[in-house]
Amino acid sequence: MASPRNRRPGYSRRAQYSLFISYVILIAGVLVGGVLLLVSKLDPPAFSAMRAGTAEVTAPVSGAVGWVARGVGSVPGWIGSWFTVHGENARLKQQVERQEKVLLRARAIAYENLRLKRLLAMREPGDIDVVNTRVVSSSASSTRRYALIYAGIAQGVHAGMPVRGPDGLIGRVIEAGPDTARVLMIIDPESVIPVRRLKDGAPGFAAGRGDGMLEVRPIAMANGQFAVGDILVTSGTGGIFPPNVPVAKVTERGRDSALATPLARPDVLDFATVMKAFMPPPPPPPADTRP
């Protein structure tokens, strides 16, 4: 007599039902995938609306799962910081003393800049923040890097608006639904950010690589290559990203380009700020009312 482990599914009605249900689920998944593929090819606006609707439904679940994952992932850091708290406290005290001197010089420079701008009657942009929102999720295992934020058209968020975190630039909104929006992160291969070096203003471009890093190229070779340790900020060129938003820090120098690490990490962020475009597009021309 054959052993129980060698029996076929036909000997067990429960095994037959399980096998049948698995086949049904597999066939249904293939059919749904084929329909979605056809819709994405034949009617991209409808597919975009379906994707936005799916994001609206799954955003609360994704947010809860992401919150739990971030909490579990931060446990080793909490344990490590408990044993190094005394040394870290002394280091931070020394850093505060150094930063106080730098802060005094920065305040003096800021006051001088304000006085010169008033003399020149320069017009400054107003408040550029639209909404502070929660980062629901972000892709970490794909070459296409997107993030989902819990704010949409109802909160004044539209496609083209830049998004930043406490440490630096995250990306820009490419698709907005009623209460959620998709953000193209700066590390995506389709992202190109005009930047400048903080210490001397040397311009360049930071392009995403899809692996969590940025490739930085200078515009003018006469300014020299970017060196390790250089801080890059947005230049304001192009009219989307406002100037002086931190972007990345150069970590490796190449022959014609350099590698930089983004200062903002969306995979560990809880909140982000959506800003207005630095130079919004001009209004449409008036309609022709002539008979």
Rank of each mutant, 00 (worst) to 15 (best):
S40P: 04
M221N: 08
A121E: 07
A46Y: 05
R197P: 00
G239C: 09
A55P: 09
R182D: 04
P44E: 13
P218I: 10
I149E: 03
L31W: 12
P243D: 04
P194R: 03
V96Y: 14
W82R: 10
A207R: 15
M279P: 00
M1T: 01
P218G: 11
G204E: 02
A147I: 05
S139R: 04
I231C: 01
S40W: 13
R134W: 10
L119K: 06
G71F: 06
V68L: 10
V35M: 12
K199P: 05
S62C: 03
G168H: 05
D129F: 09
E88H: 11
V96Q: 13
S138P: 12
P189G: 01
E97L: 05
K93Q: 12
I79A: 13
T58I: 14
V228D: 02
S74F: 10
A260F: 03
I170Y: 15
P76R: 04
A15Q: 12
R196F: 00
A2E: 07
A110L: 12
L103F: 12
G238L: 08
P44N: 12
P9L: 04
P166Y: 10
R14M: 00
G29W: 09
V30F: 15
G208P: 13
K41S: 10
R209S: 08
A15T: 02
T54D: 04
S138W: 02
G224T: 01
V39A: 14
P166L: 14
G53V: 00
H158S: 09
A46G: 09
A176F: 06
E190W: 11
E215M: 12
F271T: 14
G160T: 05
S139E: 13
A277R: 13
Y150F: 07
T84M: 06
F47A: 15
R217L: 09
R98Y: 11
R98Q: 14
D127N: 15
A151Q: 06
L114F: 03
G224V: 02
G236D: 00
P286T: 09
A222I: 08
R115V: 08
L37I: 09
L31S: 15
T237G: 02
V102W: 02
G168P: 10
Y11F: 07
D256M: 14
I25V: 14
I149A: 03
P125N: 08
L38I: 13
S40H: 13
I25K: 02
V72H: 06
E215K: 14
A222T: 05
I231M: 03
L26K: 07
V65N: 05
L148R: 05
M50F: 15
G212P: 11
V247Q: 04
L116E: 02
Q225P: 06
V102R: 01
